[in-house]
Amino acid sequence: MTPRVRASLEWVAVHAFAVAATLFFVLPFVFVALTALMTDQQSLSRDLWPNPFQWHNLVDVWQTPGFGTWWRNTLVYAAAGTVLTVVSSVPVAYALAHFRFRGRRLAMMMVIATMMLPPQVVIIPMYLVWAKQLHLSGTLWPLIIPLAFGDAYSIFLLRQFLVTVPREYLDAAKVDGAGELQVLLRVVLPMIKPAIAAVALFQFFYCWNDYFGPQIYTSENPGAWTLSYGLGTFKSAHHTNWNLTMAATLLVMAPVIALFFMAQRAFIEGVTLTGVKG
């Protein structure tokens, strides 16, 4: 086989694989969108193409009682959770990266251990405290308040980024008479903007997608449901068939995917950070 034949065979193989992969990643979205526009009857058949296109499915789902509330709750949870996580995690990550103290290694190990901890491990005592002692089940508080105490994953990511900030910058600022807090706010924060953006995005997505937390803490009060939890109950609670269920699915997926297209770079950088620097 001549090198040229080989090269073109390789080109064909690579591009065939690329087409197959593209179909695999894209077709699910396409079928979800198509089904979301079908009639009841069609969504229970083997048809692949809507006929007629029933655009008002999307409007119907949007107007389902509760959908607006779920949206608002999800936004509150994700926004408050993100802000609190960043504010509480940055100083901890900074201390772990640049302060020298006894037990630092132990602290780092604890951060990693918490990061790896399945939420189900501690959920029962946590639920008992929130529900039986504080009577806050059925609200978003049990989901939001813990995020004011630093999130292990965010601390870890920020710290990985912070150790790459050269000491000389910090020392130079300190020579000018700045305290640690000032150094952090004036010198370090501007330098780690990409990492903060990545952490904020990850946390936002985590809250937006979280199902377990809302299931445990908000399920008893439909007024506190989030989109993920509401969507999980959508099919049974509203006795809908696949068309409306897929329309709801589409409406829950759309904002996150849109956000991703807008903030793509920060994302990809963040993911790369988790893997390569880790």
Binding site: F29, S228, V252, M253, F260
Partner: peptide
């Protein structure tokens, strides 16, 4: 993009 789709969805 699919990585970001909410798990429930």
């Amino acid at each position: 993009a699919p990585f970001l789709a909410p798990p429930v969805a």
